[in-house]
Amino acid sequence: MGVLAGAWDWLATGANWSGENGVWHRLGEHVYVSGISLAVACAVALPVGLWLGHIGKGGALAVNISNIGRAVPVFAVLALFMVSPLRSAGYLPTIVALVLFALPPLLTNAYVGVREVDRSVVEAARGMGMSGGQLFWRVELPLARELVMTGLRSGAVQVIATATIAAMVGQGGLGRIITAGFNTYNTAQVFAGALLVAALALLVEGALVAADRLFPRPAAR
């Protein structure tokens, strides 16, 4: 309880929000880094995953990429970038590491989403004379949408949570608030940092759910 009150006090102190190490700046960095990473990962993974699902090939590839992705620590990838020439490229090391982290689950979910569409429905659509493109846009994509959106939401939450790791190699983001608190034995500040990350993740997930509702859904019978 003391920690919670302490975190609240920390967050309520205006001085903690301003300056280069303040919440606003770190939050801005966090949103910037995770937003770009997620956008790039989506732009690459969704078309590839959906297309592989559509042609029904590369299933082993999609699953294996996902498994290998899980085995590679983000921290190690970031560390490798930070001892390479990329270290002087601003936020680029974090962004590239997060893109690599977000790609596998997005790709797998997109692939599985299309593949799990009821085969009899696909056959029926083919029998009605739909072309490959029509089949994809009118049948497979609408039916895969739920799973793809689930993958996107969990990907977003995981990217936001993982972006904190950047602080371990001295890169920006909300993780810096946590490491700064850790280094000064300030548990209240660590907790405040964790709360900020959680709040951001929940906010983004809520926004994605809302955005999903805005798009027209195929009429349910």
């Binding site: 920690v3 939450v157 995981q158 949570a161 993982t162 904190t164 790791i165 602080a167 371990m168 993780g175 946590i178 490491t179 608190g181 850790f182 548990t187 660590v190 907790f191 940092g193 964790a194 990350v197 959680a198 993740a201």
Partner: peptide, 14 residues
């Protein structure tokens, strides 16, 4: 699972 690992380890420190 959504708690950042950095925060998790820091919060368990006390």
């Amino acid at each position: 699972y959504t708690v950042p690992s950095l925060a998790m380890f820091s919060l368990l420190l006390p």
